[in-house]
Computed example of a mutant assay.
Amino acid sequence: MRAQVSEIVFDCGDPAGLVRFWAELLGGTPVDRGPDWSYLEPPGFARIAFQQVPEGKVVKNRLHLDLHVADVSGAADEAIPLGATRSGGLVTDEQGDFQVMHDPEGNEFCFVAG
């Protein structure tokens, strides 16, 4: 069997708020299907959806998105006013640079270059 990714879903407390944060990072138009479900179709990527759940995030995500950018530090600086936070410092290795970030609800993602 072969399956195709049609959408990636984040559990969250505020779907409408979180979809707007990710739209600023990835592009696309936020869509609110209701108070408990929003989604975004970023250019060149699968749909990303946000569903409301009653519990908050407690532990590190087992899956995260790596977002390729030309300038990791610059991208992090631009994401912070949108509600992102850095987790640790800039990491540079033989593959390039990356910065672990958190979205406004604490979900991890990375800016990467290289």
Rank of each mutant, 00 (worst) to 15 (best):
V91T: 13
R33D: 11
Q4Y: 04
G74P: 03
G17T: 10
T29R: 13
D93Q: 09
Q51Y: 08
P54T: 14
L25D: 11
V19S: 02
T92F: 03
I80D: 00
E7H: 03
P54Q: 15
F50Q: 12
S87M: 07
S87P: 00
K60H: 14
L18P: 01
A76V: 09
G13I: 08
E24D: 14
C12Y: 09
M1D: 01
C12I: 09
A75G: 12
A113M: 02
E7I: 05
A16T: 13
A49D: 11
S38L: 04
M1H: 04
A16D: 13
D103I: 04
L82K: 11
V19M: 03
V58W: 04
E78D: 15
S73A: 15
M101W: 03
A84P: 06
A23D: 10
A49Q: 12
P43Q: 15
A76W: 05
W22F: 09
A70T: 13
E24R: 15
F10C: 06
G13K: 13
V91P: 03
Q99M: 08
E108L: 04
F50C: 07
E7W: 01
G17D: 08
H68F: 15
V31F: 06
T85M: 06
R33H: 14
W22K: 06
G74K: 05
F10I: 06
L65A: 14
P42L: 06
G96L: 08
G74E: 15
Q52V: 00
F45H: 12
C110P: 05
L67H: 09
V5E: 01
H68R: 13
P35N: 10
V19I: 10
D93W: 04
A75V: 12
V19F: 07
Y39W: 14
A76I: 07
A76N: 06
G114F: 05
D66I: 05
W37Y: 15
N61L: 02
D97E: 15
V5P: 00
W37Q: 09
G74V: 10
N107A: 03
T29D: 12
C110A: 08
S6C: 01
S38D: 10
G74N: 10
R2C: 00
W22Q: 08
L25Q: 13
L18M: 03
V58Y: 05
S38A: 15
Q52I: 03
I8D: 04
Q52D: 08
A23Q: 13
L90K: 02
V59Q: 11
M101D: 10
H102S: 11
K57F: 05
A79P: 04
V91G: 02
E7P: 01
L63K: 01
M101Y: 09
A113T: 11
V69R: 04
G88T: 04
T85G: 03
A113Q: 06
V5K: 01
C12S: 11
P43E: 15
W37C: 02
